[in-house]
Design a protein around this nucleic acid. Sequence first.
DNA 1: GCCGTCAATATCGTCCTACGATTTCATCTG
DNA 2: CAGATGAAATCGTAGGACGATATTGACGGC
Lengths: 220, 220
Amino acid sequence: MNAPATIGTTEKVADAIRSGIRTGQFVPGQHLVEAELTLRLGISRSSLREALRHLSGDGIVAIHRYRGAHINRLTRREVRDLLEVLEQLVTLAARLGAASGHANRSLMDAALEAARRHDADGDHRTYIAVRQAFYDCLFEVAGNQELPRVTPLRRADLFRAQIRPYQTREQQDSHTEGYRAIAQTVNAGDVEAAEAAVAALFAQTREMVDVLPDMAFEGD
Amino acid sequence: MNAPATIGTTEKVADAIRSGIRTGQFVPGQHLVEAELTLRLGISRSSLREALRHLSGDGIVAIHRYRGAHINRLTRREVRDLLEVLEQLVTLAARLGAASGHANRSLMDAALEAARRHDADGDHRTYIAVRQAFYDCLFEVAGNQELPRVTPLRRADLFRAQIRPYQTREQQDSHTEGYRAIAQTVNAGDVEAAEAAVAALFAQTREMVDVLPDMAFEGD
DNA sequence: GCCGTCAATATCGTCCTACGATTTCATCTG
DNA sequence: CAGATGAAATCGTAGGACGATATTGACGGC
């Protein structure tokens, strides 16, 4: 509906890197050498640099003069700050969604369905898809166009990538369960319950962050 | 403290455009022709395009394939959505700032001082400076590094630019007064009062948006 | 053996040119 | 005057060039 008719090289490259972070092809801290990436992606330096500049705006890569770009690696403190902001925005989304009374049940149903699928296989790829679908739906029912633009979900992907080695299957399931709780309360139009569900999800995530070993944040 | 030792052309260009929006040199809706801008700013197309790509990430300019870039122009709906998100983030900042109990009074004092100066001359330039100083201080005392990155202040600048012709001196003063109220309550460490002050400021802004003529949003 | 100096190398930042792709706009035709 | 048409403007991408800077490794002094 809102997508440009044609999509340019820059966007494709940026998407490739973003999705590469989710799939583990790129890891936080990794140095991105222009010459190598242009070869690997089959594009020119101009396009690559534009894409990197775009990603740096989202806080996904950092560019240091004459030292090039690297995938950002978040410190524990940055993760805490990020979660604080994220919770605030997701809370707003849940509140708006619950209050809107939209008949978008079908949308949220899709998220729930995906969550159920995740329970079945437990694959990390599915987990990522569930997460993506959940947030897409949530923003859709919230009906605030600014929300998806501002919410630092891509930055949160960095966090997800960093903690992946330390996350147990139980924690993943628990997190997915949190999504489901939010989806249900939003669907029911219960504003207070939805806010509580969001708070619970983030409290749980914060707890996990506090327990994580230093290596997840400083490690090399 | 956190600034790179050297600043590159791309950043300079992006800053030039951003500040040009604040000063009225660039107006929302304006088409940005690459050839003209490279001449005017004395830079290469590569650097300009990187800067535009960066700005498009912040939602300041929009790039349409083969049709170039233009300064974004917000619809009334987009402004409402923007204010909703902005209020949420500023509320968080105020809450964190008030709760931190930091002895950053000196910082907020600077903002208040600037506000006083604005009362004196009433120049629009001073108004902009006050706004900037206020938010800088607020983020500083909030102590959350993610907040300034996420908060769509640059996008709000677009809104400011669009409504400037319709804004009276009284409204500006009233808005500045709102900043002062937030600063004082945050300084006092009164969380509830600070949240209320933020809510009051945004309620006032929303009211203004509702009354504004269509021309401020659709106008050509 | 350790540390500072210095040259060689790798990489980046910026500018430039080139050319196909697409839109825009003035002109022509009926 | 509507629609087709072609020229001009502008953009998107590729790729080369060269100075600027960081990094690396060799060298020599202690």
